[in-house]
Design a protein around this nucleic acid. Sequence first.
RNA 1: GGGCGUAUAGCUCAGUGGUAGAGCACUUCGUUGACAUCGAAGGGGUCACAAGUUCGAACCUUGUUACGCCCA
Length: 1042
Amino acid sequence: MALEKTFDAQEAEARIYKAWEEAGAFKAGAHKKRDETFTIMIPPPNVTGALHVGHAFNNTIQDILVRWHRMRGFDTLWQPGQDHAGIATQLMVEKELAKTQQPSRAELGREAFLEKVWEWKGKYGSTIINQLKRLGSSCDWSRNAFTMSGAPGAPAGEEGNFHDAVIKVFVDMYEKGLIYRGKRLVNWDPHFETAISDLEVENIEVAGHMWHFKYPLAGGETYTYVEKDEDGNVVFSEERDYISIATTRPETMLGDGAVAVHPDDERYAPIVGKLCEIPVGPKEHRRLIPIITDEYPDMTFGSGAVKITGAHDFNDYQVAKRGNLPMYRLMDTKGAMREDGLSYQDSALLAAEILAGKPFTETEVDSINLVPDHLRGLDRFEARKQVIAEINAEGLAVMTTVTKKVKDEDGKESEVSETVPYVEDKPIMQPFGDRSKVVIEPMLTDQWYVDAEKVVGPALDAVRSGRTKIMPESGEKTYYHWLENIEPWCISRQLWWGHQIPVWYGLDLSAPNFQDDEGDGALDEVELIKLLTEGGMLHSGTVHHCAADFEAVHGKFFADMADLPTPLNHCRVVEVANRHEANELFASSLAEYNVTQDPTKLVYPIWRDADVLDTWFSSGLWPIGTLGWPNWDESTSKYFPTDVLVTGFDILFFWVARMMMMQLAVTGEVPFHTVYLHQLVRDEKGKKMSKTTGNVIDPLEIIDEFGADALRFTNASMASIGGVLKLSVDRIKGYRNFTTKIWNAARFAEMNEVFENYDPTVIPTPEATVNKWIVGETAKVLKEVDAAFADYRFNDAANALYAFVWGKFCDWYVELSKPLFYDGDDATKAETRQTMGWVLDQALTMLHPIMPFITEELWGTVHGARDMLAVSDWPTYGDDLIDPAADAEMNWVIDLIESIRSSRAEVHVPAGLKIPMVQVELDDAGKTAWANNEAMIMKLARLDSLSEGPMPKGAITISVAGGTFALPLEGVIDIAEEKARLEKALGKLAKELGGLRGRLNNPKFVASAPEEVVAEAQENLAAREEEEAKLKAALARLAEIA
RNA sequence: GGGCGUAUAGCUCAGUGGUAGAGCACUUCGUUGACAUCGAAGGGGUCACAAGUUCGAACCUUGUUACGCCCA
């Protein structure tokens, strides 16, 4: 069957991919020839994801490694799967519900909503899988994993046990004391009403304002505010009864716990330790706060004094912790000003007591709501406006004088000065939720944390000791930097779609209210009633236990109750939805007991933590979770530890470091020995791709237009270690042309009957120099490609193959083979066919990891009856195939052809014109080389004859190693032009000679440089001198005639 | 402000101390029996700047400048 003129990627790719799958080519262990395993875990794309250029790059790299190892006979597994992506998926499903007029998430309730999510996943969840297939990814899809598989409510087909692994790890870590619950400042998304990770926060510079307000000193005190210049001279002095504070968020002033100044700031030294007043809120309950010192304030920024709102700012939080300042929460989960808790009056009084030194607990502080009654319930931005207006109205804004031009009735301009509140317009960095797009609020909430400091050690050691290598090396520095300064990891999320935290709460029966007054081991009626009334049980704290499920946790609560007075120690533990239900059920149970005195009716209700785990907690277990841990057997566990992780630089902390910590904590093993980090894929100018900029390249469109192979080859050629990834359509187009080039080389071979008697199992041992040479070149490129792949230098492998296939095979070998095919004897034709067939096969094989489709297609077409290329052997031959004599000879031939062509072009000999050549002098090697390759040289240099003789007058000199030729072109060429050409060549030579002589004449060079380098320079000098002599002679001859 | 990088041909980038490279773009020529998604030939660089180490520096060191990314 004759090949078409070009490769139809669109038609072929789907067909070929299907054939691979049907052949089981991607199954774990396919083409296994040895016991060593090679495993790559795909960085799980979000189940909501669609393929973008980043995925395309990332998966190309993985596929190259996987295909290369598979062909080399490793027991290879590329483990695919997806991440359940809590917030993104929940959002997607909520949108879908709204779009299709279905009940909302809140209306559906948790269980029904989760059913909808699973339904959605069933419908759309495999989008990205199909897109990865279009790229040619050779994952073992039969093992596709999902981070929510096996979760309660998972439908048929989702029975994996990832959920069990996640829960088991949580319980284990909890029991080891590595997980705890605490109240800390988190990034709070007021739209989704959940904590989110740093990764999900985008800091964007927006136009903001800085307001300057006066915080009056308590009791009308005054001080002298003095500013000095660098030399200590007073430049400004003023008596003040206030301290000036600048803020971009005036609404948070309500929750201030102090004003902080730098300990070295002399301007405020007189008032440190005194109290000042927050200039907002009802006059009669103005709150006083202390002026403290802390290293945090920047003396040169603003007034140098900073208000400290521990509950709503990350820097302030640290200051508040250091200074043991109370942190007053001002907002609710929606980002509106709080309406719950105590009245403003009670809150202000309590805050005053705390200021006076009364000890406080977290719970007490959280009940304090310092939002004035008239601001309660307002959105935070609305509240900001109000606060500003009130301060301005009271005259407590710092004022400034501005001059502006006004026009009177006649249009006459005049300048007017007025005094206005001082508000700076300035860009500020504001945190936004990457999905919700709302301003993220630092919020003080109860969350679950991994005590990262306790698990970070092994993860650091593993990289320091080299057990895991991070590439590029700068990644290791970043890794150390982050892990050495690690913060507790907040792992709870206020979402529904995710792994629900395996912790149950119960009422704290050991609290004082539950005391048995008589100490008789039984509660009497009076004591029971006390429990039921306001201030009793309803306000008690809770206790909690962690276990995999209710069955496992219920015994722990039961054990807690053993020491309680009768009848409480007889309670049956039951599960309810939340604390509210627990209160009601426990109360009614006690009331019933009071009537019946039947302790068997008593129940102790417990409720499960409603929150789910951070998606990164589950994806942190990806390497073992996908393999079925903890219930794995040898058929899967043999693939762990995995080999290489290929992922983006941006998730080094969020994912890579966490996998290191978690796998080490759980299994004691590193999850992978190599981490290959790559940059974000950008557009050709280096800009981030974004919909708003309109510079997004859709990989699927690229595949449609240019084929997956072209995109993949582009990805490989960009993949220098740590390199910037700038994707340009022009470049992709160039590599599409490369595929066409390969295709046509195969077509040429086919037309010359290369494959008719071709035996792919035989490495050719030809006679013709050109055939020997190309066999050697093939061996050289294999060596280069293997070395490049082994070092993750995918660009080097791609470039080596490109240079070999286009620059050597197509540009030279195909051309040089033509005289052999057209004019050679039968034996020559036969050996050339076998050689060309073999070299082409080698090229297809070596290109396969990068360009699987076209290579597989040609592999099957040119020689049908064999295994698919994806599961064929990677070659292993070496330098033994290189024939140095053939190498030298071909290089001489190529040099000669190039110099004839070059000379012809420079003196404008018509390209089609065949001309004679004179051999002026030639050594034996040159004579042999000529004899062996005469037909090729004549054809490619467009010569019609060669004669021996002296240098003709007015001829062009062709100088090669060991000889001189001449093109007698008197009358054809312009003597002046030829002179110019020679002068230019001499000029270039002179420069090189100068450098070489300079070095060789320097005794220190000869003394200290390595011998090879000196020898090389000497040989080089000799060759250049010979060439110079020839050129000079040629010039002299020209001078004779002109 | 802290951390990590980058600066080489018009563009995009390779280049780990020994004669500055590739692809694209550009110029000239070419319907030579695979390919115009092609072929041949060519032009184009003070390797950001400065100092140092070295027989020798694009490469190592220090500083300067500019830019990028991450974190605050």
